[in-house]
Structure formats: C-alpha cells, structure tokens
C-alpha cells in the first residue's frame, strides 16, 4: 500500500473548503509521543494534521454517536470494519446516511498501538509485537469498505487465516463443567471498566441498563456472578448486530477474549436463521435476524 496520507489530507481539505461537510473525523499523530490517535478537524487548514498509517486501528464510527443530535454533515474515513459500523448505526436508526460523506480505505490490516506499546514497556521481553498484525485484523473477513462515497487504496484480500468459528467450536467441544470453569476464569478478571461497551458500535443505546440505578439490573461488585451477568447481557444485546470489528477485545485492559461470546451468537444465528453477516449492506427496511419475525422462525427453546 502506498502512503495514503497525502490523499487523505487532500480529500479532507477539499471537503471542508468546499463546505461539503462541517467536520471531518480521521486520524492524526499525537504531538506528545507520536501515537496515531483519532482526530476531528473543522477547518480546511487543519487537514495537514491528518494521516493514515498502519496504527489507525480505532473505529471512528462509534464517534458519530456524539453527533447524532446535531445536524452537522460529517466527513469520515473508514476501514472495512468501520464501514460496517456505519451500516450498523444507519440500520439502527442512530445516524442518517445522508449526513455522511464516507471515504473508504481498503485496509491492509492494522497494528495495535497499545499492544506494541505494552510490548515496548518490557512485559514480554524481546518478543515485541511491532511487526505483527493486530489480533482483531487477523480474523478480518472484510478489509474493504462496504459503504462509501469515495474509495482509497487497492482492494485487499480477507485476512481470516483462521476459521471464523474455530475458537467457538473448541469451547463447544468441552464438557459443561469445563466450560463453566473456563468462563468463570475469564469473567473473574474483568474489572468492569465498560471499555468494551463504550467502544462498541452496536452499543448505541442512549441509556444503558448497566448505568441504571433504579432498578439496578446488574450489581457493581466485581464478583464472578455480577461480571458474568454483565457479559451475558451485553452479548445478548448485541447479538445479531455485532459487526465483528473486534474493538471490544482490542480495548480490554484485561485481555479478555470477548469475541468468544459474540461469535457463538453469530454462529447460532447462522444456524438458526440462515447465514448472516451484520452490517454488510445498507438496505431500506432491512433488519437483523433477531429484530425481525417470520412465522417459520425456529423456536426449539419454547414449550
């Protein structure tokens, strides 16, 4: 992939100077330490700040939620996974497509800045993961944007060097006691920072049940039971709407394999309602499988 930064800067500059959009969401370099960070610019002169490099891993689509009550038109740069996030928001009625100018970037796979930084902080000795693709990118089936007004870069092959559901199948093959033990272990490490929820593009409710105090649906203790409730609730709430961007796993400070829950639900939905991948195309009136009803829907769970 050639350096797309000049293109990104040119497009952003034009969008702003021609008044096509009011603001542009992209990435820039943090002056303090050179990390790639999300950036929001409102003047064409600032377009020179924008960059695109292999550390632009953040999904900017979630950031649109901050603008859902305004009427501003927004230019946004998206990778494959981010573009599915845009479809998610539009389909959920959270953000109208008309207010967006989407610049798609065919994604060659990103590196996880935080993981590299953690490696550099000495925890893993010499095996710094700097050359490695981020975990979430290694499972990516759609590196090319699915919705855009303009496309940059060359079409990329899917990365998916692992079978999509192989981890889920590994868990399914365990005995029920072993599975309980496995997830108990995982959930006991959760610190309930809610980063997985807040970064999630499918978690776009204005009022989240985990923030409610009257009634309090899930306790605030970090006991295995409350943590399990949190993760089971959240997995069910995004079931059928998860776009598999993998941001939840990326941001988890405890490194929990949260996609194991999401992919299990995706796998079951595939089996019960036919193959489905969330956020692949934006169609008028289309609804995710769990948001629609057909008489012939299977219902083996109900007596």
């Amino acid at each position: 992939m050639g350096d797309l930064t000049p293109e990104v800067q040119r497009i952003a500059g034009n969008l702003l100077s021609q008044g096509q959009v009011d603001l542009v969401l992209g990435w820039a370099k943090a002056p303090s330490n050179g990390q790639s960070v999300p950036a929001c610019i409102r003047q064409a002169e600032q377009a020179g700040r924008l960059i695109f490099d292999q550390y632009c891993i953040h999904n900017l689509a979630t950031g649109l939620l901050d603008h859902r009550d305004s009427s501003e038109r927004i230019g946004i740069f998206v990778k494959g996974c981010d573009s599915r996030g845009i479809v998610r928001l539009a389909e959920d009625g959270q953000f109208p497509r008309e207010r967006l100018y989407i610049v798609g970037i065919c994604c060659p796979g990103m590196k996880d800045q935080a993981a590299c930084d953690r490696a550099a902080s000495g925890l893993f000795g010499e095996t710094a993961g700097d050359s490695e693709l981020a975990g979430k990118c290694r499972q990516c089936a759609h590196p090319n944007p699915v919705i855009y007004d303009e496309l940059l870069g060359d079409q990329q092959p899917p990365f998916l060097n692992d079978v999509r559901f192989s981890d889920v199948q590994r868990i399914e093959a365990m005995g029920i006691g072993e599975r309980g033990e496995f997830f108990s272990q995982i959930f006991s490490k959760c610190i309930r920072c809610y980063a997985c929820r807040n970064i999630c593009v499918a978690c776009n409710c204005r009022q989240c049940i985990f923030d409610e105090t009257r009634p309090q649906w899930v306790g605030r203790s970090t006991s295995a039971a409350d943590n399990m409730m949190y993760h089971a609730f959240r997995a069910m709430h995004v079931a059928g709407r998860c776009v598999e961007c993998g941001e939840c796993e990326r941001v988890c400070p405890a490194g929990l394999p949260l996609m194991l829950l999401n992919r299990k639900l995706i796998k079951d939905i595939d089996q019960l309602f036919g193959p489905y991948e969330a956020g692949l195309s934006l169609e008028e009136g289309a609804r995710p499988p769990l948001s629609s009803y057909r008489v012939e829907d299977p219902d083996p769970f109900v007596r």
Binding site: I171, E172, I176, G177, E178, R179, G180, E181, F182, F183, S184, M228, A232, A235, M236, L261, K264, L265, D268, F301
Partner: peptide, 10 residues
C-alpha cells in the same frame, strides 16, 4: 439465550 447460557456452562 439458552444456547449462550449452555455455552457458558449452565
């Protein structure tokens, strides 16, 4: 839900 709970060991 049932599937998920069973998957998690219930």
């Amino acid at each position: 839900m049932k599937n998920l709970l069973e998957y998690m060991g219930f």
